[in-house]
Nucleic acid binder design. Structure first.
Lengths: 209, 209
DNA sequence: GCTCGGGTTGTCCATGCGGCCAATCGTACT
DNA sequence: AGTACGATTGGCCGCATGGACAACCCGAGC
């Protein structure tokens, strides 16, 4: 990220001034996202962002209306990117069980170490206070739940899942479960998710009474 | 909270100096917790806390090693208090279904408006970064999950719940589900929890395939 | 060749912060 | 009565922050 190649002239091309402008803007956004994940939303300063981006701190004032706007924009972009992978997984997975197994496996493999997780928690906390951030984040969540609901519906038609329960409800519950589990894992890294995974998969499979 | 009765002499008793000290400390802790819930962890200043507590700002330095310690202590106390009600509910509830229905009803009734919810989110985010806060919070979570597991076990012995799944896993899943739902509700207040509630209760009851 | 304008740079400033401390107070103990 | 000591109080300091700004650089278009 400190690498100037992000915003400086590449070998072949000459850096038109307009190109430089967008490059600087992007470098600031990337640096802001990285620093929020590292140090926390409120610990981040415009000077630190500029330093990380390799630009003088005056550049922040020029490219953004203020720290608030910069962080909001950076957080939104980072959230969209972080949510892209799970969303794609939800659409491509063959079944709910497969999705859950894959996600649990990712948790167990230490997916929490990904700075994106810290980034998401910071963004969620901020979104709870800033409506301008909350609205788009809520929309992203909505899309994710929708993709999940489609997957659930497919499973129900195949008879792999109880058909008597509302698909959107199952989707909302699964989404909440997975996010809640992330939250608990962040607070207690020693928590063993194996039993929870077994329990959920067992219940969904219709364990005998 | 501005009410001086919290820390000033009550009618009958004379305020011994030691008692005053304890009262001031407590007033600072209460004010800190309230302000964190209102404005967010990082937006809180020692001066604002002192003003809310009705004491001069120098009192903070005297009673606490620093802002960090004050906030940590306040957050921990507030979290313990906020978790007391759900924990008691988990121990006293007759069944998992009853617990879930009660909790869902509380969500639907607008339990999110409770400042304790904002407080918890702030504390969680901070605990993710501060091990000194994370450890006790993790312990509280552990206790809550344990109480829930006991409840699940009772249900399994009564045959109200599938016996083939690990009780601690079910407990961990339910705890994550409920907390994750809070998170989603904070980010999207318009989210309807009814379908999710129906789905979870249906799955736990063993809906026919 | 010259202007024009977006992009860049470093400096400056007002503000508010957390923490420190010396003076003061008032109670409890001798 | 006198002393010791914890609690109180408000002023003070150093410092970092976010933002504004004037000077500048340099390619683009005439």
């Amino acid at each position: 990220m400190d690498n100037p190649s992000t915003r400086r002239n590449r070998p072949g091309r000459r850096p038109s001034t307009a190109e430089q402008g967008v490059a600087t803007r992007r470098a600031l956004l990337d640096a802001a996202a990285a620093l929020v994940a590292e140090s926390g939303w409120c610990a981040v300063t415009t000077r630190a962002i500029a330093a990380r981006a390799g630009v003088p701190h005056g550049a922040v004032s020029y490219h953004f209306a203020g720290k608030e706007e910069l962080l909001r924009e950076a957080a939104l972009a980072a959230t969209r990117q972080a949510l892209a992978a799970p969303a794609a997984f939800a659409t491509q997975a063959g079944s709910v069980a497969e999705l859950l197994e894959g996600t649990f496996a990712w948790y167990a493999a230490g997916g929490l170490a990904d700075p994106a997780v810290a980034q998401l928690l910071e963004t969620a906390r901020q979104a709870a206070r800033d409506p301008l951030l909350r609205a788009p984040i809520a929309a992203e969540l909505h899309d994710y739940r929708k993709a999940l609901a489609d997957l659930v519906r497919r499973d129900q038609q195949r008879g792999a899942l109880a058909a008597g329960v509302p698909a959107d409800g199952v989707a909302a519950a699964i989404a909440a479960l997975l996010d809640g589990l992330i939250l608990h894992l962040v607070l207690d890294p020693d928590l063993d998710t194996q039993p929870a995974a077994a329990a959920v998969l067992g219940l969904l499979a219709g364990e005998p009474r």
